[in-house]
Design a binder for these strands. Sequence first.
RNA 1: GGAGCGUUCGUCUAACGGUUAGGACCUCAGGUUUUCAUCCUGGUAAUACGGGUUCGAUUCCCGUACGCUCUACCA
Length: 524
Amino acid sequence: MFLRGTCGKYKSYLCAMNKRVRVRFAPSPTGGLHLGGVRTVLFNYLFAKKHGGDFILRIEDTDQSRFVPGAEEYILQTLNWCGLTPDESPLAGGPYAPYRQSERKAMYKQYATQLIDAGHAYIAFDTPAEIEEMRNNFKTPENPSPQYNQAVRAKMRNSLSLSKEEVDALLVANTPHVVRIKMPDNEDVTFTDMIRGEVSFNTSQVDDKVLLKADGMPTYHLAVVVDDYLMKISHAFRGEEWLPSAPVHLLLWKYLGWANDMPQWAHLPLILKPDGNGKLSKRDGDRLGFPVFAMDWTDPKTNEKNTGFKEHGFLPEAFVNLLAVLGWNDGTDQELFSITDLIEKFSMERVHKGGAKFNYEKAKWFNAEWIKNADNAYLASLVQPYFEEAGIQVQDKSYLEKIIGITKERCILLPDFIIQAGFYFAAPTSIDTASIAPKWDDNKKNFFEALCSAFENSNSNDPTILENIFKELTATQGLKPGELMLPMRIMLVGGKFGPGVFEIAATIGVADAVARIKHALTLL
RNA sequence: GGAGCGUUCGUCUAACGGUUAGGACCUCAGGUUUUCAUCCUGGUAAUACGGGUUCGAUUCCCGUACGCUCUACCA
């Protein structure tokens, strides 16, 4: 399928060929990045890389009251962890710097002025209290939230309702004011969304959005259009929650005289909470026992902590993979995709329209698959920090890699290696004697004592030899091997899990195995 | 309230007018593993509803229901 939509009077795919692909992720630094945010990053990144274009990070910090220290650094770190590093950003710089809107403040005013001069915007002096009053006055059961629109703007204090002298006087007096877009009365604004196809709004339904705030900062609406234009953005992807304000942006592109340069839009479906309905929020994660943020995030103002996929033990490759297929697929049964695969196969047209409920069980499945298929040395580097935290000493790196190779298929999350592989590095600290005790008797005790001697005498680290010793001994003592395997396993690893007992004994060394058995015998 | 967007197994999805509606997760039943996990085999389970259009609708159109998003000097 070709890219749909029009770009000026030309078909979009012609534009796409002529215009360098430049996309941006434009978060406001108000907190950690959650699943939906990272997926938006991912789709932007994939689209850019697929078309040999640029991926830009632009920080939309026009609202000082919501600014959260550390959030920008967190976003950068998250993108790095995911391997979705932007080509241009506040950190990396680039030809269209600065990439923080607060640092671009001076650039926006001239465009607001241009809009006023052209009659597409006006100055409004209404105080918050006056607007509040208007809303109360016009509120009816049928219209619970009246808008500042063509129906009421004549009754408010603005450059449309006031005389030029009054306006000038107010301006000279430094009266706080905003700039609002003047929405046309009854005009259909239609555009083609790459995911949804043709989408249409009537301007009578949208209000006169504030473009420039009283503090001189632009609102999102003005800033996004100006910056996308100035930064030569070719495709603009954002969450579905932006769809209703798309007509404002469309009109702005037109009024500013940039219609032919307008990016193609795609509004991404939302990620929904697993239980009930509604968009996934940061509160859902830890409430339901899974992370929603990419990495741990603690809000410096509230001290509220949200855990992250990284710290829960997800591989970045798995995280990216599971995000990619949340609302997108390549049309085949393939579910496991590397980033290279994704870049090759991604297409915006195959993104789903409907929102997707997040399913943590499936997310873990992706991680388990990635762990099973991952390179041992790579896994070792990721597991090491968890071992250090758990107090597990690793002397020999190649030994660690070997152990990871034989235990990785039993691990779903990285911390699982602590249990599944920890006993290869140190004797278990707790031994599940409760599972041995009920059937424990002197015959078994004697057997294990004899086994220790036999093992010591053999001085062998060959699993087959150890198994033969074990079986011969059970035979001579008239015992069933099956009744002794489980106790031995528990003595070696601490519980009912792990690879074959003789493989374990051989791997940790017969001396260590004997020591563990002897220690366990003191507990029974 | 209004506007917009959406709706296939419990969940994520495939099927761009013709399939016994496919796959994956979950779950269930077997098998392998003298443990656990992996792995293998198999099962249950879906086109929201009502009208059209059509020889034929999951697919196109209309309506209804339901859900979501927006309706801030927040993004």
